[in-house]
Design a binder for these strands. Structure first.
Lengths: 118, 118
DNA sequence: ATCGTATATTCGATTATGCGAATGTACACG
DNA sequence: CGTGTACATTCGCATAATCGAATATACGAT
């Protein structure tokens, strides 16, 4: 019971646990958008974003509407937008860590380069 | 820049994207708790919960305090509690899906059994 | 010092995720 | 009909997450 509920919650969080999917939800919180535009704005391969959209669809986080040849996505529940808004507060309260992370990122990149060189 | 921010956000969500860690955060939102008690309440192996706690620590979601032989965990920022609260609203708005998920779970269990039998 | 308890870390095996390439499907237009 | 465009799905591989078992560390008590 309680376990199922937690699994459900974790599922939602996990669905949001990828930069591309965060980007999607952020864009959609301002209104619906076609796959093509999302693709272009976020800057990933079409097949890839489709995969991410499929994940969000499976969790019922987004809904779709077909218009002729293209498909428009929107958030199903504005509440999720509010959650993201709360999260935004959280992020601003901890911007320092974002900076740290960016540093780590650079280091990580160097390591990857080193690995790649071998 | 923006990409880093999204990665940070995704990191937080991903950290919350596991039932055990959701349980931890929920318990801690009511106050600090020792590892042993968490372990017992949630019902997982000690080593396992330590691993999950390590993940939450790395994301600075929780902080610790040592008292003699044991270590008490607490949420670092009550804002996260609020985020969880918003999420709770969301979950109650979509309880139907939790039910569905529980059904799927049963089906999944059957499938696993079948697999295991082969 | 040494023993017991509480917690953390490492290791190895299993499973899940993420990606691009290729392929499939649905619709519009002629 | 066929062709083009928009989007989705499948596949194969690489990387990452998860788990329990074993091991390590930190502290209190004797």
């Amino acid at each position: 019971m309680l376990e199922s509920l937690r699994q459900f919650k974790a599922g939602i969080f996990q669905a949001l646990g990828h930069p591309t999917r965060v980007a999607v939800v952020e864009f959609l919180s301002h209104g619906e958008m076609s796959v093509g535009v999302l693709c272009e704005k976020i800057g990933v391969e079409q097949a890839n974003i489709s995969q991410h959209l499929a994940i969000l669809r499976n969790k019922h986080i987004v809904e779709t509407r077909r218009d002729g040849n293209q498909i428009f996505y929107r958030l199903r529940d504005p509440l999720l937008g509010e959650v993201l808004e709360k999260m935004r507060e959280y992020f601003f309260a901890h911007l320092g860590e974002v900076m740290e992370m960016m540093q780590e990122e650079k280091k990580g990149a160097k390591k990857s380069e080193q690995k790649a060189r071998r």
